[in-house]
């Protein structure tokens, strides 16, 4: 459905915006390396089923997400390393890993390797933006491209919510994927404050600056 497709393309767009920002400005300043590593972990643990993906649509997106994230990490850790300031990127990711690990172990749909890792990746994704938002809070402002990146990335999961509602009513089974929906709502809530400033400042041509 349209929400799902818009969401996936928003996700892809966010990655292109980030790569464009790094290469255009020859800098990864303002980008949290920790969040990027968490996204890599999210993709690896969620797409363990990559070789068995039957849909070409999903297969292409999975390959794009994994490969582009690897490239972003390479740029941040090697090519543009001097522009990456670890002193600003101080969020304690062990809390996020613990949160996702605990929920994945306590409430997976099934106790299989794939299911536990899948649940871990869903919960981890829901909080993976926190180091990035924390860094933003410390610097107090962001370049326009960085703000566009975070906005597009947040929109992706927000668009999955109407997708789930649409699917609930349009598919005969009326199933609710409780893990994905709960984590998706949590993820969108974490962005709400950012979205508000993005809407009131950046979309009106102003700089992204925290009050």
């Amino acid at each position: 459905n349209i929400f799902r497709v818009l969401g996936d393309f928003s996700h892809l767009a966010s990655i292109f915006i980030l790569l464009h920002k790094i290469q255009q400005l020859k800098s990864c300043s303002g980008i949290s390396f920790k969040s990027q590593v968490l996204y890599m972990l999210v993709y690896i643990t969620r797409y363990l089923d990559l070789p068995w993906t039957s849909s070409p649509y999903n297969f292409i997106f999975k390959v794009l997400f994994i490969s582009s994230e690897l490239y972003i990490i390479y740029l941040m850790a090697r090519a543009y390393k001097p522009t990456n300031d670890p002193n600003l990127d101080t969020f304690h990711v062990e809390f996020l890993l613990g949160f996702a690990g605990l929920l994945a172990l306590l409430f997976p749909y099934k106790y299989t390797i794939l299911e536990v890792f899948w649940a871990f990746s869903i919960w981890l994704e829901s909080v993976a933006i926190l180091p990035q938002l924390f860094m933003l809070q410390r610097t107090g402002e962001a370049e326009a491209m960085t703000a566009h990146y975070i906005a597009a990335l947040g929109m992706y999961r927000a668009l999955y919510i109407p997708n789930w509602i649409y699917r609930y009513f349009s598919e005969p089974t009326h199933k609710v994927d409780t893990i994905a929906v709960t984590a998706g709502i949590l993820q969108t809530i974490l962005y709400s404050d950012f979205f508000w400033i993005y809407y009131t400042k950046v979309m009106r041509g102003e700089k992204f600056k925290l009050p």
Partner: peptide, 10 residues
């Protein structure tokens, strides 16, 4: 089955 449903999203 639920597993198939999970895996059909990204």
């Amino acid at each position: 089955d639920k597993r198939l449903e999970i895996k059909d999203e990204l």
